[in-house]
């Protein structure tokens, strides 16, 4: 298969830039302290993801990627952030959240994880197209940073956002693969919605039980030592 996007071409540069921008926003998500700004950064990341998907749809000439882009934009860029903001204001938890780690260690760990992802992905994909390789490396970094932000945050709502930013990384990986069948993207998108519904149920239940969204309260119940 001849590569549609050659190294150095404008289409390559833009696709690369968009992927990198998604990664930069993952870093931004890592050090935010206020819940509302975390939600805002998540929304921006999702919109950038939508643009990246649409651009891939344009250069790969595959229409179904536009649908992915549309879903990313409408659901993750607009609907979910709006709903999360509503929940945050209704529960009056717009104050800053506790983080288990300080800004510097978190960022250092983040840089380490991104480096690791690149070191792992690039040598293993020598035969693939340059863009596919770099897209995959960026996507893996986003997944890893999402994981890290889930670990370093204590509040349920920020863990949820870490989880969703991880899924952004997955979509970024999917759109960068040439000819990836539609099934996966659509179902991923649907599942994010479903997962969100489940989360919503959780928020209210956790609120009912503990009067707080801090999941460390849950440990009071007793962990594995029963």
């Amino acid at each position: 298969m001849t590569p549609r996007i050659a190294y150095g071409a404008f289409s390559y540069d833009l696709a690369h830039l968009l992927g990198a921008a998604v990664l930069v926003l993952s870093f931004a998500l890592l050090y935010q302290r206020r819940i509302t700004s975390i939600i805002g950064f998540y929304a921006v990341q999702s919109v950038l993801l939508a643009v990246a998907a649409a651009w891939q749809g344009w250069v790969q000439d595959s229409t179904h990627l536009y649908i992915t882009a549309l879903i990313a934009f409408a659901a993750k860029g607009v609907a979910i952030p709006v709903a999360l903001r509503n929940i945050v204001f209704r529960l009056r938890i717009e104050r800053s959240v506790d983080a288990a780690l300080g800004v510097f260690p978190t960022m250092a760990l983040g840089v380490g994880l991104a480096t690791l992802s690149i070191l792992v992905v690039l040598p293993t994909t020598v035969e693939s197209q340059t863009l596919t390789r770099e897209d995959l490396a960026l996507a893996l970094s986003v997944v890893m940073l999402g994981l890290l932000s889930m670990i370093t945050r204590r509040s349920a709502i920020t863990q949820v956002i870490g989880f969703m930013s991880m899924e952004n990384g997955l979509i970024l990986a999917a759109v960068g693969l040439p000819g990836m069948p539609l099934v996966v993207e659509l179902s991923v998108a649907v599942l994010v919605m479903v997962a969100f519904v489940v989360f919503g149920v959780f928020f209210f239940r956790i609120r009912d039980q503990f009067d707080s969204l801090d999941v460390s309260h849950l440990d009071r119940v007793g962990g594995t030592h029963r």
């Binding site: 995959l136 989880f163 899924e167 990986a173 991923v188």
Partner: peptide, 16 residues
């Protein structure tokens, strides 16, 4: 959820 997300990345790599 995290486990499954990692598995999906594995699926993409298999496709590649």
């Amino acid at each position: 959820g995290v486990g499954i997300a990692l598995a999906l990345f594995g699926v993409f790599v298999l496709y590649l």
